Simulated assay, not measured.
Amino acid sequence: MKAIVINQYGSADELVEQEVPLPEINDDQVLMELKATSINPVDWKMREGYLKEMLPYKFPIILGWDAAGIVKKVGNQVTAFQPGDKVFARPKTNPTGTYAEYVAVEEDLVCSLPENSSFDEAAAIPLTGQTAWVALVEIAHIKKGDRVLIHGGSGGVGHLAIQIAKHFGAYVAATASGKNEAFVQSMGADEFINYKEQDFETLLSDYDIVLDTQGGETQEKSFSVLKRGGTLVSIAAPPDEEKAAEKGIKTGYFFLEPDGERLQELAELMKNDELKVTIGKTVPFTEEGLREAHRVSEEHGVVGKIVVQIGK
């Protein structure tokens, strides 16, 4: 089958087309014929070699963490799906990812495609949607009436996090650049902060939850926004535990482990039009298409998600 792989760490130019064996499935897996995948920052961080100690894979490595497509084959123990079913998933973290025509995925990580969702839309949800859900629901225990600050509200995680927070009845403030104000507000944000011209830490106070997608100075300033007992969850870097203890703030930092039941929760929101992904760019399943997508992602040059159309 065709795949886009890396044979060494480096720039986007390391993404090359290669023929690789069709995945063999275990008894508890389905073989998905991919119609679309999407780009996440973890893709190019892995390509650059930033994750090689945590994920010491042998080359060639197939990147990609999102899958949407059609079930081609099922293992002997699979009961929930059959060939022809339209599905999506965030497969397990391994060196045979989703920049490929086929991928093997455990049955318990697979979810039926909502009828009102396209393959492109579904492919953009699994990693970023589950990341936002873990941060807000499983770590911060969001509830109705909470005041939530989401950094990077126009990004892949941020624009989904706004919608999830609103689903739970929270008041949401979000940061982004001024050109994305209308978009962030359309996602449901109650308050918009242009991070290039405004200092969020002087405008906001007494918040229950901050979702940090930036790290660095943004994370440091976020401590002052939270009330005692509040929660700072980061997907960028572990928050300072000593500072958190001084301020009576809970912290969270995680590397996403996929979960099919969690993805099903997101699918229900998708079915009810409470969770809509924005696709800022689509690229073809070619070397140049993937290279362009990685470069745009590294430059934070798109609103929402970048989708790779495979089965077109």
Results as ranks from 00 to 15, higher is better:
34 L>H: 03
34 L>Y: 05
35 K>T: 08
35 K>G: 07
35 K>P: 06
35 K>D: 04
35 K>M: 13
35 K>L: 06
35 K>H: 12
35 K>N: 12
36 A>W: 08
36 A>V: 14
36 A>N: 08
36 A>G: 10
37 T>R: 09
37 T>M: 05
38 S>N: 00
38 S>D: 02
39 I>C: 04
39 I>D: 02
40 N>E: 02
40 N>C: 06
40 N>V: 07
41 P>M: 00
41 P>A: 00
41 P>F: 00
42 V>S: 00
42 V>I: 04
42 V>Q: 00
43 D>Y: 02
43 D>V: 02
44 W>S: 08
44 W>A: 09
44 W>R: 07
45 K>W: 01
45 K>Y: 02
45 K>F: 03
45 K>P: 01
45 K>R: 07
46 M>F: 12
46 M>R: 14
46 M>W: 09
46 M>C: 13
46 M>H: 13
47 R>I: 05
47 R>A: 00
47 R>G: 05
48 E>Y: 13
48 E>S: 12
49 G>H: 04
49 G>Q: 00
49 G>R: 01
49 G>V: 01
50 Y>D: 14
51 L>D: 11
51 L>G: 12
52 K>T: 10
52 K>I: 04
52 K>R: 15
52 K>E: 05
53 E>N: 11
53 E>H: 11
54 M>R: 15
54 M>Q: 15
54 M>E: 10
54 M>D: 14
55 L>F: 14
55 L>A: 08
55 L>H: 11
56 P>V: 02
56 P>Y: 00
56 P>Q: 01
57 Y>W: 13
57 Y>Q: 01
57 Y>V: 04
57 Y>A: 03
58 K>Q: 13
58 K>H: 09
58 K>Y: 03
58 K>M: 09
59 F>N: 04
59 F>Y: 08
59 F>M: 09
59 F>R: 03
60 P>I: 10
60 P>L: 09
60 P>C: 13
61 I>N: 03
61 I>A: 04
61 I>L: 10
61 I>Q: 04
61 I>H: 07
62 I>G: 13
62 I>W: 12
62 I>C: 08
63 L>I: 12
63 L>T: 12
63 L>K: 08
63 L>S: 05
63 L>M: 10
64 G>A: 10
64 G>T: 12
64 G>I: 13
